[in-house]
């Protein structure tokens, strides 16, 4: 059971209030029609599965209903930061290498 800091409610809440939404920072291509099937499939289907730091999108489903991002370690489950939609992570895998 993770303890998650909601950047909008500005406090820690129990994991059961949240839903995970997979990898963060996946941007919808601006002109889908100009992409090849392969390029489009990269956007649709392919996701990272790192051992280590991962940026994930979550939603505070039972709370403020806001989506936000999280930098989480997939081995230790440690959450290094949560940040609002539109912001960039301040900690990345490169930083920690």
């Amino acid at each position: 059971m993770l303890h998650i800091y909601c950047p909008y409610c500005e406090e820690y809440r129990e994991e059961e209030e949240f839903h995970p939404h997979g990898q963060a920072h996946i941007v919808r291509p601006l002109a889908p029609e100009s992409l090849t099937d392969e390029e489009w499939s990269q956007y649709l289907f392919f996701r990272k599965n790192p051992r280590g730091l991962h940026h994930e999108m979550w939603v505070h489903a039972a709370g403020c209903r806001k989506f936000f991002n999280m930098t989480r370690h997939t081995v230790t489950y440690k959450i290094l930061e949560t940040y609002k939609m539109g912001q960039q992570p301040s900690i990345t895998a490169e930083d920690t290498q």
Partner: peptide
């Protein structure tokens, strides 16, 4: 005021 899970509802 908090929005939260309550038993199996919210």
């Amino acid at each position: 005021v908090i929005g939260t899970a309550f038993a199996k509802s919210s």
